[in-house]
Design a protein around this nucleic acid. Sequence first.
DNA 1: TACCATGGAGACAAATCTGTCTACTTAAGG
DNA 2: CCTTAAGTAGACAGATTTGTCTCCATGGTA
Lengths: 193, 193
Amino acid sequence: MDKREHLVQVAFDIFYREGVHAVGINRILTESGVAKKTLYNHFASKDELVAATLSYRDQRFLNWLGERMATGQAGIDALKAMFDALHDWFNGEDAGQPQFNGCYFINLSAEYGDAEHPLHQQCSAHKRAVQALMRQHLSAWVESGVLDQLVDALAILKEGAIVQAHVTGDKNAALKAWAIAEPLLQAHVRQKD
Amino acid sequence: MDKREHLVQVAFDIFYREGVHAVGINRILTESGVAKKTLYNHFASKDELVAATLSYRDQRFLNWLGERMATGQAGIDALKAMFDALHDWFNGEDAGQPQFNGCYFINLSAEYGDAEHPLHQQCSAHKRAVQALMRQHLSAWVESGVLDQLVDALAILKEGAIVQAHVTGDKNAALKAWAIAEPLLQAHVRQKD
DNA sequence: TACCATGGAGACAAATCTGTCTACTTAAGG
DNA sequence: CCTTAAGTAGACAGATTTGTCTCCATGGTA
């Protein structure tokens, strides 16, 4: 078994549920059954472990979302699939996602508020990657002149839904966001050549 | 001078910039020049001080937003004024707001993720209050059947804009959000009797 | 068999955390 | 003038923080 991978998984679970600053290294060690020596053998500091959990989550989330968007759907349907996926995540109906506790990257941006901080920038990079995924699914189906606008709009709606679901507990936020997004997209569907 | 008030102001400034768990009580004491005894004379614990900063920010933010929405505007224009206010906040162009570092309530919800936690619920209550303010400005101007939908939509757009501005640094997010919100509102303006 | 890398368990250092408590000062009001 | 309340300054306790280091066990490989 890969100790490093195990450590990252356990650390992510705990950091995601309870926050980074609220949890000490020792919690992760006892909960993972790994020795402190081993942790500091793989990571130079707690921050490096946190960075690893961000990479781990980044990869897993993009894979998950990519798959949910790709299942037989094309174009605008893929975007609907994205909001459906968010809905399932909020409501604990997708086994591929942990108990919903907001977005890990938004949460970490809150704890590392300084935009210059490496961890904050890692969060920013993740959001850009998700936007790239949306753009990729949209680019062939909408007029290219409005592509950037639509991706920005979808990003705002997606982040807003996540925050609403987490802070106010509105578990239908993803559906509400899609209700706004859909007509926006429909209005700019490219005429099929 | 009111020691309690001063303490809350300084604590809010620091907690907002750096996060709650990342800052110790002693930082607030030295930076405010107040004795530890005095702090614990006013507040039973750090959590109570945090709760006070939430109340303080809740009041200040609602006052600020309410004023920006009320200046001569009516109906839908008041909502445009809201997004303009957010834009100024993001870009440091409103002296009534601190250096933008995201939404204090979203940030605290990230640090206190458990929905049952009193501080989390205080954040949730703030968001409901802001929605009530939006509803109040809208209720006379749109068809009553779609009022709830519109308020939900505006809330999602507002939170989405804040998160985008903070995490990815897109300081124009408020304008983009308004570009989505405006046609939604226009479509449901009540016929003037 | 001998060697060496890896990890387990945890003591330890040095700093920092929250919260309590003592001793002293200051100011207001009867 | 005397009493009382409130604040200052900071020592202190006890827990917890990150990170280092030691000692020992285990397991694969030359």
